[in-house]
C-alpha cells in the first residue's frame, strides 16, 4: 500500500470519529440542558461544548462574544472553522476519495451519502429541531459507515489502518470529553447544587459516550461520578472506554507492522507500554487526581498520534 493512502485511511478514521463524538456531545449537552435541575446555566453548557471541541472561550474574544446560535453554528456547520463537524465530514470524505480505489463501493457510497446529507444543512442559523436532526443524522450516518467498514472490507491492512485512526481518535475524544465534564462538575460544585446536579452531569457524561444504558446494566444502580469514570476509563468490555480503545490500537498496530520486534522508541513499543500501564489500574488510584491523570493521558495520546504519523509517512 502507498504511504499516502495509508495516511488517508488513518485520517479518514480519525475524522469520522471526531465528527461523531462532537455531534453526540452537542446533542446530549444542548438538549439535556433544557430540563437540567436548578437552572443549570445554559452558558455552562455552551462553555462545555466549546471546551470539548477545542474552541477556547478564554483566549478568543470572537468566540466569547458569540451568541448561542452562532456558537452552535460555528461548531456544527461552519466550514471555515477547521474543528466544526462539517469540516470533519468534508475531511473524512476527501481522505476516502483519495483512497477510494481500494475501498468497497458500499463503503465509499455510504461516506459520500453522509457528505451530501450534511450538505443539505445550509442555513447560517439552526433551529433547535435542526440541531437535533443534524447531530442525530451525523451519529446515525457514522454508525452506518462504521458498519460498512467492518462488514464490506477485508480485515487486512486497509481495515486496520482505518481502525487505528478510529481507536486513536476515540481514546482522545473520550479523554477530552471527560476533562470537559470533570471541569463542569467542579464548577457546578461551587454553586452548591447538590447531589442531583452530580447525577445529572454523570448521566450527560455517560450519554455522550453512548454508555448510559450499559453502565446501568453493569452496575445495576444509578451512576455516581466514581462509577461513571471507572466505566468509561477502565471497563475492558465497553467499546468506548479508554482501555478498550488502547487495546484496539495495539491490535491494529500488530496487524500493520511487518516487524514483530517492539523497538524502544517505536510506536508499537509506546502503544504497548501505554496499554500495559492501564491494564492494572484501579479507579481508587486515580479518582483523587483525576484531572492531572486525564491530562497526562491526553498528552500520551498526542504522542501516540504523532508516532503513528511518523511511522506511516
Amino acid at each position: 500500500m502507498l504511504s499516502r493512502i495509508a495516511n488517508s485511511l488513518l485520517w479518514m478514521g480519525r475524522y469520522l470519529e471526531r465528527a461523531q463524538h462532537t455531534a453526540r456531545y452537542v446533542n446530549v449537552h444542548y438538549f439535556s440542558a433544557l430540563d437540567a435541575p436548578n437552572l443549570s446555566k445554559k452558558e455552562y453548557v455552551l462553555d462545555s461544548i466549546s471546551c470539548m471541541t477545542g474552541l477556547s472561550y478564554e483566549y478568543d474574544e470572537e468566540i466569547l462574544n458569540l451568541e448561542d446560535q452562532n456558537l452552535i453554528y460555528k461548531i456544527t456547520l461552519d466550514e471555515t472553522n477547521p474543528v466544526s463537524i462539517k469540516s470533519f465530514i468534508n475531511n473524512a470524505r476527501e481522505n476516502a476519495r483519495g483512497a477510494r480505489d481500494i475501498l468497497s463501493s458500499e463503503l465509499w457510497e455510504s461516506i459520500n451519502k453522509f457528505y451530501h446529507s450534511a450538505n443539505a444543512y445550509q442555513g447560517k442559523t439552526l433551529t433547535e429541531e435542526e440541531i437535533l436532526s443534524f447531530t442525530e443524522m451525523v451519529v446515525h450516518q457514522c454508525a452506518i459507515v462504521n458498519g460498512y467498514i467492518d462488514h464490506s472490507l477485508l480485515h487486512n491492512e486497509t481495515w486496520s489502518l482505518i481502525q487505528l485512526g478510529i481507536h486513536t481518535e476515540a481514546a482522545g475524544q473520550l479523554t477530552r470529553m471527560l476533562i470537559a465534564k470533570v471541569r463542569d462538575i467542579e464548577k457546578t460544585e461551587q454553586l452548591k447544587l447538590g447531589k442531583a446536579m452530580e447525577t445529572y452531569q454523570c448521566i450527560a457524561m455517560l450519554k455522550s459516550a453512548e454508555g448510559f444504558d450499559m453502565s446501568r446494566v453493569h452496575y445495576k444502580s444509578v451512576p455516581n461520578l466514581k462509577k461513571a469514570l471507572e466505566f468509561l476509563i477502565l471497563n475492558k468490555d465497553f467499546p468506548r472506554s479508554i482501555i478498550f480503545n488502547l487495546e484496539a490500537v495495539n491490535d491494529c498496530l500488530q496487524k500493520i507492522s511487518l516487524v514483530k520486534g517492539e523497538e524502544k522508541g517505536s510506536v508499537e513499543f509506546f502503544a504497548g507500554k501505554l496499554q500495559a500501564s492501564y491494564s492494572y489500574l484501579t479507579i481508587e488510584e486515580i479518582q483523587d487526581q483525576i484531572l492531572p491523570f486525564l491530562e497526562k493521558t491526553l498528552d500520551d495520546l498526542y504522542k501516540l498520534g504523532s508516532l503513528v504519523d511518523q511511522k506511516i509517512s
Binding site: L2, S3, E157, I312
Partner: peptide
C-alpha cells in the same frame, strides 16, 4: 508517491 533512483521509478509504500 513516486521517485526515481538509479534510473528506475519506485513507489513509496507502507512497507
Amino acid at each position: 508517491d513516486l521517485y526515481v533512483d538509479k534510473n528506475f521509478v519506485y513507489m513509496k509504500t507502507l512497507h
